[in-house]
Design a binder for these strands. Structure first.
Lengths: 205, 205
DNA sequence: CTGTAGGGCTAGGGTTAC
DNA sequence: TGTAACCCTAGCCCTACA
């Protein structure tokens, strides 16, 4: 059966690396769409990118690939983008949006990519800890607390109840009547039960 | 990411099934609220129920978006002339930038995105129609045909086989042995009707 | 604002070609 | 046999719409 496999070229690999450095892990479609990388990756799908990244990190894990370095002596005339090692950022609990990518269109990009999830969780815990109602706080109260001191997307209410539900399911929170309480005081700090998870954590946003 | 997926358990599935039997499909919120099922579904949202139901039954409901668009098959008839020039295309400057250095940020906003995918498809169809080999033509023949009369990127061979594969998958082409044949001569307008391009406002203050 | 339908994307396991 | 490349599907999120 003919199903010609297309081996990845070096250029494609580097474009992918650069794309991950710029957009973060998991933003495969964005990377593929980015005109900067689309020149190299236009024949690959977002899924392909993901798959390739998977077995790129599997092989050359971590750093120190000093053995067979491909001479990257190609002096780019102007390459503002660095396409070096992995953006292996340490786990930063909560950080406000920073590292703003310049030149985004006017709209403030509060878009929730799911990457804000930990941030929302943090807000929720903060709200509960501050309100410290012995009976817990209901959705409206939490919403109110957060909305007053954080910039949140329009549909934050939905996100919030989704988050709350999930946290209850994860037994981080407890629900009594219509109110939520913190169950474990060990902070939400996703205890990361990672057995040996090799986490290539993207930056943040 | 602080958001591990939550696989559906057997109990949850059954509760959902029972809920649909009782309330009917589409009544997700009712099912979720029903105390009879809420015991099992409390950690799921109505949306979750809907989504789960979708892939419990659907199976055939294709999704898993991959790569380029899936044309919505606009029923409107189209003249073959809508296609970007085919025969003896005078100047179809296929972006041969493929070997240029990365990070030409902001230079072209024409974004190769996938805009030339239809053009490549057109080339392929033209080649097959001209060669009109009853057994079909193989990759090399197609490549040769196109390369001789169009400017193509350096790595066009890769692109070509990618396109061929895709077209076979889309049942626009048929593959026998190593040769490709046109399956149906309908329109192969495989491009997004509305690219939904981001506003590239040239903000210059 | 509350809900639903449908599109779109990703993670991860499975499969295939080499 | 091992592995890179590719496929399939569950789980969500997002937007549109009523």
């Amino acid at each position: 059966m003919g199903n010609p496999k297309q081996k990845w070229t070096q250029e494609e690999e580097e474009a992918l690396r650069a794309g991950v450095a710029k957009h973060g892990t998991g933003k495969w479609k964005d990377i593929q769409r980015d005109p900067e990388f689309n020149k190299f990756l236009f024949s690959r799908s977002n899924i392909d990118l993901k798959d390739k990244w998977r077995n790129m990190i599997g092989g050359a894990s971590g750093q120190g690939q000093r053995d067979k370095s491909r001479a990257k002596a190609k002096a780019s005339s102007d390459a503002p983008s660095t396409l070096p090692s992995l953006p292996n950022a340490p786990n930063v609990p909560v950080s406000d949006e920073a590292t703003a990518e310049p030149a985004t269109d006017g709209a403030q990009r509060i878009a929730d990519d799911g990457k804000n999830t930990p941030r929302y969780n943090a807000m929720i815990f903060e709200a509960l800890q501050t309100l410290k109602d012995p009976n817990g706080s209901d959705t409206a109260a939490i919403f109110n607390y957060i909305e007053k001191r954080q910039e949140v997307p329009q549909n934050f209410r939905r996100l919030l109840s989704s988050r709350l539900r999930r946290l209850v399911a994860q037994e981080k929170l407890e629900k009594v009547q219509n109110c939520f309480k913190i169950k474990e005081i060990a902070s939400f700090e996703t205890k990361t039960p990672a057995p040996k998870e090799q986490d290539v954590r993207p930056k943040q946003l």
